[in-house]
């Protein structure tokens, strides 16, 4: 009888031990992941993506303002039937382009996407964005340390944010 309870007790102890080890293992994970992210030279611009207004988002992302340029060509439909999927693209004849970003002014958060270009990557990108309603769309090209922009109005007949 005593031996059985003894065995049970040790078994319980072992189980408890296993559980606490598992808990410790889980607890360690976020810490292990954090340095790996920080090590990436270009961090995800969390703050810029949280800005509600276009001007604030541009400031958070680049820390300066853009000037309109006809060298930035922004292509988007005049009327988007489905705001959930709006094909948008940018091309530019500017040199030394390091990044291109898209801002949808009427969205809950203005910054939609930001692309970084290496030397030898053609400065242009096509993607699909969500638009909550009829909005101004702004593309910003960072070239040789300066910002250039192009703007277009997109009419949205059905919003893309579930509204």
């Amino acid at each position: 009888m005593t031996t059985t309870t003894g065995a049970l007790a040790t078994r319980r102890l072992i189980l408890q031990g296993a559980a606490s080890v598992a808990l410790l293992g889980l607890g360690n994970l976020p810490f292990a992941a954090a340095p790996a992210r920080a090590a990436a030279n270009d961090k995800y611009p969390e703050e810029a993506f949280k800005q509600k207004h276009e001007a604030d988002a541009i400031k958070a992302l680049y820390g300066k303002t853009a000037e309109p340029s006809d060298k930035v060509k922004l292509d988007a439909p005049e009327i988007a039937e489905n705001g959930g999927v709006v094909p948008v693209s940018v091309t530019t004849t500017l040199d030394k382009v390091s990044s291109i970003s898209f801002f949808v002014t009427e969205n809950p958060y203005a910054l939609a996407a930001s692309y970084k270009f290496a030397d030898g990557t053609i400065p242009g990108v096509a993607n699909r964005l969500k638009m909550a309603k009829t909005t101004k769309l702004v593309a910003i090209v960072e070239a040789d340390g300066k910002l250039y922009s192009a703007t277009k109005e997109v009419k949205v007949t059905v919003g893309g944010c579930g509204g």
Partner: peptide
């Protein structure tokens, strides 16, 4: 790294992207 995208929630479901490099 030839091309890096930082995306927010305004990128469409099942995202698509196109670019070119040398």
């Amino acid at each position: 790294d030839v091309f890096v995208a930082d995306w927010g929630t305004a990128v469409s479901k099942d995202p698509y992207v196109k670019f070119s490099f040398k």
